[in-house]
Design a protein around this nucleic acid. Sequence first.
DNA 1: CTGAAAGCGCTTACAG
DNA 2: CTGAAAGCGCTTACAG
Lengths: 331, 331
Amino acid sequence: MQNISLEELAGKAKVSKTTASLVLNGKGDRYKINKDTQQRILRVAAEYNYRPNFSARSLTKGRTMTIGLVVPNIADSFYSNIAFQLEQQLANTEYQLLMGSTRENSEREEALINTFLNRQVDALIVATTQKKQAYIERIYNSGIPVVLFDRHYPNSLLPHVIVDNYRGINKLIHHLQSKSRTNIGYVGLELELDAIKERQLAYNDWMKATSSPDFFRTVHYENYQAECEGVVSQLLQNGVDALLFETHYLALEGIKCMTSKGFHCPDDVSVVSFGDHQAFSVFTPGITVVHQPVARIAENCLELVFEQLKEGGLQSSGEIILEPELVIRNT
Amino acid sequence: MQNISLEELAGKAKVSKTTASLVLNGKGDRYKINKDTQQRILRVAAEYNYRPNFSARSLTKGRTMTIGLVVPNIADSFYSNIAFQLEQQLANTEYQLLMGSTRENSEREEALINTFLNRQVDALIVATTQKKQAYIERIYNSGIPVVLFDRHYPNSLLPHVIVDNYRGINKLIHHLQSKSRTNIGYVGLELELDAIKERQLAYNDWMKATSSPDFFRTVHYENYQAECEGVVSQLLQNGVDALLFETHYLALEGIKCMTSKGFHCPDDVSVVSFGDHQAFSVFTPGITVVHQPVARIAENCLELVFEQLKEGGLQSSGEIILEPELVIRNT
DNA sequence: CTGAAAGCGCTTACAG
DNA sequence: CTGAAAGCGCTTACAG
């Protein structure tokens, strides 16, 4: 098990480091190394369980075969699913994922990216706090592949894969209307994120267009549990007949509050959510949601990464907008 | 942004690489480098945004400051929470996490560990499929720090932090009994894991001791959703008044089936789960669970890692058994 | 077909 | 107080 070096390996196989290295890297045939010699080298390598030193290889090749993943919270089911997908799709490549959570803190985001850069990751996939545009652009412009997902910077050339947030909310509202709900409460987050703003805009546009009552409410990310409770009970008193949650964890919190107050879903008030969650198909009634295509998002992120890693660099526009899909359940 | 090397940096600061390296690594005072010289070096470093090449440093120091985390599934809330905790607790250290999912496939586990080892991770934290004892022991014995969590190998010296599975199930059963439930159905997994066996043993011991009817059932990991449905509806027909699920995702699936069949919880049948889930406090009624102390598990894993990394190596027994905590909700 | 040698970018004895 | 030099373990032109 104890690592032997290329040099020792070469010694035992009675060849030079060059030859050993060539063979071990599958270039034996190309360099017309004797079959016997090749066999010998391979045998010795197997026998001593030779592990090429990754740091040394990275140093000479200038690549670490590592991709840095930065998300707000890896314990959040959306991001952990993205991580899982990325990892699975990367499983048959040489790439590995290094990851970290920002907890929506932009300082932590910068520190994390910085750490990853210090480690010479070959690319960065980040769900940004959207407060580090200049910093990330500087990195991107210095030649390091970057792809943003879930959140992006409008008016920026940074490659990104996002979901059509506006349409997502629209779909939810239309669905609710088809169920004859008109007093639709909206529970969102107080965050400076474009993805969030888009969702809120969709609701507000609808509200104005239909002259619906203003049941638009937001809570703070850091204290969403407590605030959500307050907002929901207030909305309930105001007589909403539907509650639209901007994100899955708000919906979870909201449902908790609703049922604790004895309100029934969907009879009293219908609940829908932007973003799915394992629990939503388990609840009775099942919660209708707009689903974010996790596997597709991961796939597209990697496509953009590899496109940048390739010779000519990014060829496409670098913008991928996915359609969120309405999953109709019982609400 | 373009990286400059130590050599260039030294050139610009008009010192040798040695001096620059010393100062940059905070050893300036120890080596009594002139204050002025130090200032100059630091200034140049800042000006050119010097990033020491991590691969080069790893190569010379023989350490990568990287810990490999191997779990069955990073999208599983239990493991993603562990990952989050590890990452947060590691945030003020130089260590980073590299992670991968085995999907309970032991071949994939070996491949993953192998990849991590190729990358010279400094330590391994793994929730093993429990089919790779010899392989992992060989690694451990070769001097690489390893800590197992969630699953371990009984009769092995591999350091591990686990939960008292037997007691966990016991607590759940006692709780159910205190609610006067006697026909307790058990839904578990068909997996060769000690953690699982312990849970099942606890149920079976209780069953025999109390001459309770045999409502012990298992499903296959790969097809648990479909099979769970079958098992649960059968148990329901058999007239159980309580359902004990061996793990959170089985409970989720079971509840779905139960409610779809019109059974009410806890009136008709009370549901409890080994392992908590975000949804369980949202459901009405709240699901009583035995909670796995995620933060403590992560903390203890790191303690064992660092103990092994330290000079003398492991001093403690290397076995940490945590108590699962009963969280009583409405069931 | 195969080897000697340079180089990747650091750190750290060793000198002075 | 500071520098020249060796060495970490690879890869890859360059020779022959």
